[in-house]
Design a protein around this nucleic acid. Structure first.
Length: 339
DNA sequence: CTGCTGGA
DNA sequence: TCCAGCAGG
């Protein structure tokens, strides 16, 4: 997914603890999609409340956000607006369906459920307008700000790190670096072992931090050249040049100076090259005002998650207790002011 | 994905 | 006490 320039990047192992106090941006659609495909019950379906409404996104957002807040990390969620004009909607949709089917297929294979494997292709999940509005509503109740990106949420999230509105972007995608994010945190809330899909094997996952300036200095290239490497390798907007991976891309860009010269030497073309470059250099984004955080509004959250959506009151209360430790100085008037 | 629990 | 495996909604 995204731009695979992993092979040329310097990464540092980090931990949630040593990042206490920072502010981070998160591409909301990206993680909601992950939650919908990975938070599932034994039947392989997303979690649902007693009325049959999907709740995997609420579960994921609540627990993920809580983990960050408990560690004194302040998240801002960036929601997709209009897709960038270069994004091929049909391809994007097919890609999403494919990814979901792969995730479900892995699950079915683990369960050795032959019948389920057959029905996979007919089951498709979309991020609906309800899922989006429910997610925003929960964030409001948790006192966590979100921004509506004019276009791609990832571009907006990266821009906030670029201009210092947040410290880092939490993302698995290296696209953020092409988009100018100063720092990217990967595997940030994962700890210990993670199952490799399909196989029964586990690998150790550790959070890592990637610093843009450090990497540009280390590689001896400019931001424009990094973008050139990314486009040669392939982005969401172009398939990339066959035979060019991150390392080859780097040496070609360093040898010839820019992507145009590389393409000329290789006698290749990339459709919409200028527009793709423009997207990474100057994507549609907006300056955000002051990001306001507030203590979670316990009664509203209990009402929403437990009464309306069948979550366990014990569980939600104990998580809220943990979050509230970071807001011990807050008083009732600040709560009233916020809502 | 993350919390919780029961067996070692 | 620890962590693998299961439950959550």
């Amino acid at each position: 997914m995204g731009v695979d320039i992993s092979g040329i990047l310097v990464k540092h192992q980090t931990s949630i603890r040593e990042n206490g106090g920072i502010t981070v941006s998160i591409d909301a659609f990206n993680i909601i999609y992950q939650f919908l495909s990975s938070i599932r019950g034994e039947d392989g379906e997303p979690l649902k409340d007693e009325h049959g409404n999907i709740t995997s996104h609420l579960s994921g957002i609540f627990y993920r956000t809580a983990t960050l807040l408990e560690n004194n990390i302040k998240p801002v969620y960036s929601f997709d607006g209009k897709p960038y004009r270069l994004k091929d909607e049909t391809l994007k949709e097919r890609k999403a369906i494919k990814e979901k089917n792969i995730a479900e297929l892995n699950l079915a294979m683990e369960n050795k459920d032959a019948e389920k494997i057959k029905t996979l292709s007919s089951r498709i999940n979309y991020i609906t307008a309800d899922i989006v509005s429910e997610s925003k509503k929960l964030l409001d109740m948790m006192g966590v700000p979100w921004v509506q990106a004019p276009s791609e949420g990832e571009a907006q999230a990266s821009y906030m790190s670029k201009v210092g509105a947040v410290d880092s972007v939490i993302s698995q995608d290296y696209d953020c670096l092409l988009l100018g994010a100063r720092r990217v945190l990967r595997n940030f809330t994962m700890y210990g072992r993670r199952r490799i899909s399909g196989t029964g094997k586990f690998i150790n996952i550790t959070p890592e931090i990637i610093d843009l300036k450090e990497n540009l200095d280390n590689l001896g290239i400019t931001q424009d050249q990094l973008i050139g490497i990314g486009i040669l390798v392939g982005t969401d907007f172009n398939p990339g040049i066959r035979g060019i991976g991150a390392k080859t891309g780097l040496s070609l860009i360093k040898k010839y100076g820019d992507i145009e010269s590389v393409l000329k030497q290789k006698n290749k073309t990339i459709d919409n090259l200028d527009e793709i470059k423009e997207f990474f250099l100057n994507p549609p984004v907006e300056d955000t005002g002051e990001l306001k955080f507030a203590p979670p509004y316990r009664e509203k959250i209990i009402e929403y998650l437990c009464a309306e959506h069948s979550f366990s009151e014990n569980r939600i209360n104990s998580i809220l207790d943990r979050i509230e430790k970071n807001y011990s100085g807050a008083n009732q008037s600040s709560l009233d002011k916020y809502f």
